[in-house]
């Protein structure tokens, strides 16, 4: 039985499908007058956030509370973390408090992996985003959203556009969507395309326009404005012209294709307001689905012996 969710690379197609199916079942309670299940009563879920992310934290908090878990929010601001306590000492504290699961957002790539594997704690670890590495529950909720809009993901063509180099969302999605049978194409300026991307289970392009007509979905990544200072592209306007999704470009998409964005958006930079607010956009749907998917993850990690999310991955080659 797998104890942690650290990377979508650890998930088999069956694991991922189980999470998505479970999320679909759990989604039904969102329509009930009392949106709560007793499943995780008496269990403690800690949200350990080293980076500001109100959206992700609230999503996990809602998910845990709907399953009746006790939730402790532990953020870098307003706790000893900001006074320079090490991750290890924070982990030992959480262990002593009896955390059953730690949902961790960390600015360092591998933060969640270290927490899970350094021998500091015994609780389950859920990666809620680590540096520029992975954000597996975001990819799961994206897959969930795609599945509900497009049916199966098998053979579907998904474009991921923008700052792929620094995107944990892109890394998690490439791994998960390809596992689920989708064909992923990354689109980015060469400066924001990861090194050795040829080895990834996807194709890549520097040019957005020829890719769009073939897509079933296009996922626009947030452009972080601080990249500008590092000369990854000359100006915001030039980026927007070459890689932004505006109404005219959206028209090149097939009729059924959807537009996704993990949020928060830079309207007018990577996505125009018109596109973001169109009926093709799944952006608010993604947020709602996030709660169901995170409920499923917590349920499967903490809910006992039945359906595991895969098998324990051997970490760290010797």
């Amino acid at each position: 039985m797998k104890r942690h969710l650290l990377s979508t690379a650890d998930l088999s197609a069956d694991d991922a499908t189980l999470i998505l199916d479970t999320a679909a079942e759990l989604a039904r309670i969102a329509d009930r007058p009392i949106k709560k299940l007793p499943t995780l009563r008496g269990r403690t879920v800690v949200n350990l956030f080293y980076e500001d992310s109100t959206r992700t934290r609230i999503s996990f908090e809602t998910a845990a509370k709907r399953l009746s878990a006790d939730v402790i929010n532990f953020s870098a601001k307003g706790s000893s973390v900001s006074k320079g306590e090490s991750l290890k000492d924070t982990a030992l504290t959480l262990e002593a408090m009896g955390a059953d699961a730690v949902v961790v957002r960390h600015w360092a790539s591998g933060g969640a992996y270290r927490l899970a594997h350094a021998g500091w704690i015994r609780s389950a670890v859920v990666n809620a985003g680590d540096g520029t590495h992975e954000h597996p529950t975001q990819a799961l909720l994206d897959a969930y959203t795609l599945r509900s809009r497009l049916g199966s993901l098998e053979g579907r063509r998904i474009g991921i556009v923008g700052d792929v180099l620094h995107s944990r969302v892109a890394r998690s999605n490439v791994r998960l969507l390809s596992t689920l049978g989708a064909e992923v194409t990354l689109v980015a300026p060469p400066t924001l395309m990861p090194f050795a991307v040829e080895g990834w289970p996807c194709s890549s392009s520097y040019d957005l326009d020829p890719v769009l007509p073939k897509l079933d979905a296009v996922m626009m990544l947030r452009v972080q404005r601080e990249r500008m200072d590092q000369a990854f592209f000359p100006t915001e306007r030039e980026y927007s012209r070459r890689y932004g999704l505006h109404a005219q470009r959206m028209a090149a998409l097939p009729e059924h294709a959807v537009v996704m964005h993990p949020g928060p958006m830079n309207r007018g930079l990577e996505i125009s307001a018109e596109v973001a607010d169109s009926t093709r956009s799944t952006i608010t749907e993604q947020v709602a689905n996030g709660v169901s998917v995170r409920m499923a993850v917590l349920y499967l990690l903490l809910g006992g012996s039945e359906p595991a999310i895969g098998t324990e991955n051997e970490g760290g080659a010797k």
Binding site: S109, G110, D130, G131, T132, H133, E134, R168, R171, P194, F195, A196, V197, G199, W200
Partner: peptide
Amino acid sequence: QMNEGEVSSALGLRG
């Protein structure tokens, strides 16, 4: 953070 290559790309560590 580490050698720039296939592994750094996969791990999201600056090369």
